[in-house]
Design a protein around this nucleic acid. Structure first.
Lengths: 146, 146
DNA sequence: GGTTGACTTCAAGTCGACTCGAACTCCTAG
DNA sequence: CTAGGAGTTCGAGTCGACTTGAAGTCAACC
């Protein structure tokens, strides 16, 4: 599968990536592509398979919370060509750390939520649910009562 | 530590929870408290330790992505008193599942990001970084090239 | 040859969760 | 008795990332 001469319309790319055509134009205008998007004789956008791959990566970066300006910066660096790999690396590394932090935060919240879920489950099966929220918000951070 | 008669001003609660006074008023107006917030003779809000505990839980629910309307629903149920514990349980369980999904999604993204980070690290130490972005967006989902 | 549907550009609207500002009241300290 | 600071209400503004709409072009099918 060479990525060389696959010419894709914006509609095809939309179908392949799940991004709307509107969003793809928006991304182009935001400078998220590493190379200027080419046009055909009629002035329409022509995408390559390579760009689709990049969009898939973009989607993951976005869904994990990387802001568009940072993705743009990364794309800018790639557009400039060799010589700035260290900065690209830094962007990725920083984002990696951020995502790890996000995961840790979510897992902490998950712990609290799960504790509450367990307490409800116990009281519901025991038929003592009416004791909930009697002496606190159904298990505060340090509370073991429910 | 009884939670009975601790009377806290909005400023104190702000300091204890990290939420601004603006946000606390906003939360009250959004119906996020299980009991109507009491006022003193001068019409000012008087919070209890119990409410601070609840706010801490709220903060975790929010930071893990539970929308305010859902938190309000939960608070409404608690306000109504015993008899609706099953629905409260459902809200918590549903959110727990959502957060688990979030964690899974983040970890998938993390995998991709980490792969790219590793590739950059290798090429940077090997001095071959200029080969990046030669035949693809530096490692697509299935690509092992970089 | 007319209509359909995909495409184009540009501008404005949406959404959630705050965040901020204005104008005012009230209690306390000096 | 006045200055300061914390409180009050109400309403408008912000932010990021789309999302939607209007108005028009272009190529192909019936």
């Amino acid at each position: 599968m060479t990525t060389e001469e696959t010419a894709l319309s914006i509609g095809k790319v939309s179908a392949l990536t799940g991004l709307t055509t509107h969003t793809l134009r928006f991304y182009e205008q935001e400078g998220l592509f590493a190379a200027p998007v080419r046009r055909n004789a009629a002035g329409r956008r022509v995408f390559t398979q390579e760009e689709v791959e990049w969009l898939r990566v973009c989607t993951k970066l976005r869904s994990s919370g990387m802001p568009l300006p940072e993705i743009r910066r990364y794309a800018d660096l790639a557009r400039e060509g060799p010589g700035n790999e260290a900065e690209r690396f830094e962007i990725l590394r920083r984002h990696e750390a951020r995502v790890q932090q996000q995961v840790a935060d979510l897992q902490e919240a998950l712990g609290i939520i799960h504790t509450k879920v367990e307490i409800y489950a116990q009281h519901l099966t025991a038929g003592t649910a009416d004791q909930l929220w009697r002496d606190g918000p159904e298990c505060g951070p340090a509370a073991d009562a429910g």
